[in-house]
Amino acid sequence: MSTPADRPPTWTFLTHHARVLVEIARDPGLRVRDLARHIGITERGVQKILTDLHQAGYLTRERVGRRTHYSLNLEEHFRYPTEAGLPVRLLIDIFVDRDTSGPA
């Protein structure tokens, strides 16, 4: 008999779009392959999400040599009506430790 710990979850609290934003906030230089592995979806799925986020103004892309570097627009607001007045910075701040104090 299998236990709940043996089965993969069938749903999560965060969408794949939110998880892509969080992973990029943690490491703006991640490759699509690495994003897909971290999130557990296909590279094609990540590419679609990156396109969605770029078109909606949540991120910009810059080529640095052979790699792509992503920058987030953390002041862009959530899309759902009940959170539309809130910036995505609130979500990122929950999951990403962005200590800006620099070295001690």
Rank of each mutant, 00 (worst) to 15 (best):
P8V: 02
P8R: 02
P9I: 05
P9R: 03
W11G: 08
W11K: 14
W11P: 08
W11A: 14
W11V: 13
T12K: 12
F13G: 15
F13Q: 11
L14P: 14
L14M: 06
T15M: 00
T15K: 06
T15N: 03
T15P: 10
T15L: 06
H17G: 13
A18I: 09
A18G: 11
A18C: 13
A18N: 04
R19N: 09
R19P: 10
R19A: 07
V20P: 01
V20E: 02
V20H: 02
V22D: 01
V22K: 04
V22I: 02
V22F: 06
I24T: 03
I24E: 04
A25P: 10
A25D: 01
R26Q: 11
R26G: 15
P28I: 01
P28Q: 04
P28C: 03
G29D: 01
G29Q: 04
L30C: 02
L30I: 07
R31E: 08
R31G: 15
R31Q: 15
V32R: 05
V32G: 05
R33W: 09
D34G: 11
D34F: 09
D34I: 10
D34M: 09
R37Y: 08
R37N: 14
H38P: 07
H38G: 08
I39Y: 02
G40H: 00
G40W: 05
I41N: 04
I41S: 05
T42G: 08
T42S: 07
E43S: 14
E43V: 10
R44A: 12
R44N: 13
G45M: 04
Q47P: 11
Q47E: 15
K48H: 10
K48E: 06
I49F: 00
I49S: 00
L50M: 00
L50K: 01
T51P: 13
L53R: 01
L53H: 02
L53C: 03
H54W: 06
Q55L: 10
A56Q: 09
A56W: 04
G57L: 03
G57I: 06
L59I: 01
L59G: 01
L59V: 08
T60R: 08
T60H: 12
T60G: 07
R61H: 14
E62M: 12
V64F: 05
V64E: 02
G65R: 03
G65Q: 01
G65I: 05
R66S: 14
R66E: 10
R67Q: 05
R67V: 13
R67Y: 15
R67H: 14
R67A: 12
T68N: 07
T68P: 10
T68F: 05
H69E: 00
H69K: 15
Y70W: 00
Y70S: 02
S71K: 08
S71N: 07
L72P: 07
L72Y: 03
L72K: 04
L72V: 12
L72S: 05
N73Y: 06
N73G: 11
N73A: 11
E75F: 07
H77S: 10
F78V: 09
R79Y: 10
Y80Q: 15
Y80T: 15
Y80G: 09
T82K: 09
E83Q: 09
G85L: 08
G85D: 13
L86W: 07
V88E: 02
V88W: 03
V88A: 03
R89S: 08
R89K: 15
